[in-house]
Write a protein that binds this DNA or RNA. Structure first.
Lengths: 229, 229
DNA sequence: TTCATAGTTCGATCATAGTCGAAGCATAAG
DNA sequence: CTTATGCTTCGACTATGATCGAACTATGAA
């Protein structure tokens, strides 16, 4: 009847509350088991299993068997990107599920977006990288400059390993709370794990909230300065 | 139960086939009446009316009464952006509604994305603007350089009128066919209407297809050159 | 005024799909 | 082996919501 991709099929997958809960939970970037996701979605294991197979069929998930557990994560950054976009629309329509509480404020401050840093701290880092000339927009891609490459290496990130992978190194990601870009892609992921290894941050077990340690916060701002305007 | 915006609500709105058809039709950027959208969606006027009020309640549409007609258009670029993202996921999942025919090829070549130029020609124009130094990524925004400003004025676009409006002037937009950026925002819109006024292009009445006239195609490539690599 | 067209509202019908209990596999532990 | 745990499949129940006919409202034309 109509031309173009079947958008309703994908949207209807996301449109079920239980499945939306599952996807939201996976926005933490962690791989979760079917049981955990069932609990997260507030349904029994049977229904969760049904949902998960449908999401998988739609190409939204990447399942991995491990022993008698089955782990699920989001299929790609693209999926996370669309989910963030939907969150933006939902927030704009005034449809937030929960009244904004203290947890919500922490969520705006810093949170995990699939596998990289989002929220206020995320956009701050992105802006700093750009203003220092480490990141540049070239044609359609975000590229790392020479000084930027050096910066990343000095920071203790194994850049060679990243560039050999197929996934894009740098990627812009727009988030719903800030409405500004932050750094995604494999480099964004590498930064986040590096922060974690250096104990700059702690990830909340239950939610997507990221909390900075005191020393982490200080170190962050010296490494990623931003002149006020 | 969960934190964050109610993503399922918005997604379920898009997830109905009839509503998805409506939204896809509105991706042409034109404002359409309820009757036209009913026909487009393949349902009666009554059901279309019901769908339209729901989409409106969800903040996805911008309705305008005009006489005894009621025109609908997408509420914002953000909505169009999410829809394009969903198309990307659907295309990736191999779920295209129609087998790729000749019309589909034309769709990839040049089409309307909400109100600006997308497809091959769209990314071409974007790349050209960037490589000529007319557009730059600064912090998180796409900005027009000084030479770029001059270029736009020379092109016959009333830049003052655009900058006075509240909508963002420049905006990156990623499309599903090319997986690359093209220019959105009010400037993107202005370019498209200018092309139309100069008879460079013709918009198909039924679909989102844009066809370039022969002279338009030539003029386009001289104005937006791109050195091969 | 009368008629026609555009759109909304109401009500009834009907199908899709979300839900869970129960049973069935598969893997790991004792 | 037996037992326990994680997950899938089957089947039945149920509710949500899409659909359209019919009646109603509103704007425009004659």
């Amino acid at each position: 009847m109509k031309e173009g991709p079947d958008i309703a099929y994908i949207a209807s997958l996301i449109g079920d509350p239980a499945r939306a809960n599952i996807l939201t939970a996976l926005m933490s970037g962690k791989a979760l088991t079917a049981s955990e996701l069932a609990q997260e979605a507030g349904v029994t294991l049977q229904t969760a299993s049904s949902h998960l197979s449908k999401l998988d069929a739609g190409g939204l998930l990447r399942p991995r068997k491990q022993g008698r557990h089955k782990y699920f994560s989001l299929a790609s950054d693209d999926v996370a990107h669309v989910l963030e976009g939907l969150m933006g629309l939902a927030a704009g329509a005034g449809h937030v599920r929960k009244r904004t509480g203290p947890k919500d404020a922490r969520l705006r401050k810093a949170r995990v977006c699939y596998n990289h840093l989002a929220g206020d701290m995320g956009t701050h880092m992105f802006d700093s990288l750009v203003s220092q000339g480490y990141l540049r927009l070239e044609a359609d891609d975000l590229v790392l400059s020479e000084t930027g490459t050096q910066f990343v290496l000095d920071f203790g990130i194994d850049l060679d390993a990243l560039t050999q992978a197929r996934a894009p190194l740098c990627r812009e990601c727009l988030d719903w709370s800030e409405r500004r870009s932050h750094l995604g892609g494999s480099l964004g992921r590498a930064f986040l794990t590096r922060f974690e290894n250096m104990s700059w941050i702690k990830r909340d077990k239950e939610t997507r909230v990221i909390s900075f340690t005191r020393t982490g916060q200080q170190a962050f701002h010296t490494m990623f300065p931003l002149e006020e305007m």
